[in-house]
């Protein structure tokens, strides 16, 4: 079993569009949507939920006013300014470190797992999919990402499936690190803009830091051919293989509006051909990896 994570650094470069096409192209795969705080893959793959699991992520402190003696210990120690002058904890500011719970001399503080998310195991027209929904305004998305990955991996191992294909989150922080953990390779999708190149450098740097092989492709390549060229040159410098480019084409939005991947919506379009060629190369490279 091999795991491929699609990432981008910059948001909105086309991770989910590409991942959805890979779902249609790969023969043996489990899909995992690890962009748990703004998940979109389900809009294309239309999963039918088979199993649902409640995810208890973080926790927040709660002060029992009937026990509190207003000694200020919790207020003094809290580094997140989460406790108000009248001893009420703001669950959004609370980091869940439980220091207040430990220092309270009268046991007036309780730690409550109020923060929830959900993880789903589903079936789609392209096989199994694992996805999740982080509770609104909540934290610990890295842990929820790890849970999604774990379930996807278990299904792949149990059913002898070749690939886990992961739709990653934007950025380079905790959910991204969690989404690329254990990946055989990452595919970074970027766009030919100053911002796209700036962000690509950081996300490829992240993959390198963790010793994960990075492949790169450019979406909307014809928007700025000079920048596309610069991205290709950067890939040579950092030893990340450039695996293809996708044209700036309205067919991508039309497919999305139709709840289909591009390769299903217009299999003979040039964009579909470009995506197929990218998948082919990703598949070839993945096969050479341990």
């Amino acid at each position: 079993m091999k795991s491929i994570t699609v990432i981008s650094g910059k948001g909105g470069t086309g991770k989910t569009i590409l991942t959805a096409s890979f779902a249609a192209l790969a023969e043996s795969k489990v899909m995992a949507d690890c962009d748990v705080d703004a998940a979109d893959l389900h809009l294309i793959l239309k999963p039918e939920i088979l199993k649902e699991e409640v995810f208890l992520g973080g926790q927040a402190a709660k002060i029992d006013k009937s026990k509190c003696i207003e000694c200020d210990r919790c207020l003094d120690e809290c580094r997140f300014d989460a406790i108000s002058e009248n001893f009420v904890v703001d669950p959004i500011d609370c980091e869940g470190c439980a220091l207040c719970y430990h220092v309270c001399p009268v046991e007036a503080i309780e730690m409550i797992h109020s923060k929830q998310g959900r993880c789903y195991i589903s079936k789609t027209r392209h096989g199994h999919m694992v996805h999740a929904k982080l509770g609104i305004a909540e934290e610990n998305s890295g842990k929820l990402v790890a849970l999604v990955r774990k379930h996807a991996r278990e299904i792949a191992e149990r059913e002898n499936i070749e690939y886990v294909i992961v739709d990653g989150p934007p950025g380079i922080g905790c959910p991204v690190i969690s989404a690329i953990t254990g990946a055989s390779l990452v595919l970074a999708v970027t766009e030919p803009t100053v911002s796209g190149l700036h962000d690509l450098k950081r996300v490829v740097g992240l993959a390198n830091h963790f010793g994960i092989k990075a492949l790169v492709c450019v979406n909307k390549h014809d928007l700025n051919p000079a920048y596309t060229r610069q991205i290709e040159l950067h890939c040579q410098e950092v030893d990340a293989e450039f695996v293809g480019k996708i044209s700036f084409d309205t067919v991508i939005t039309k497919a999305m509006l139709n709840a289909q991947s591009v390769v299903e919506y217009q299999p003979d379009s040039s964009v579909s051909e470009q995506i197929k060629s990218i998948w082919q190369r990703v598949d070839e490279v993945a096969r050479t990896l341990p």
Partner: peptide, 10 residues
């Protein structure tokens, strides 16, 4: 702000 709806955005 960063994208998303979780802790960094908040």
């Amino acid at each position: 702000a960063p994208p998303g709806t979780s802790c960094p955005v908040i």
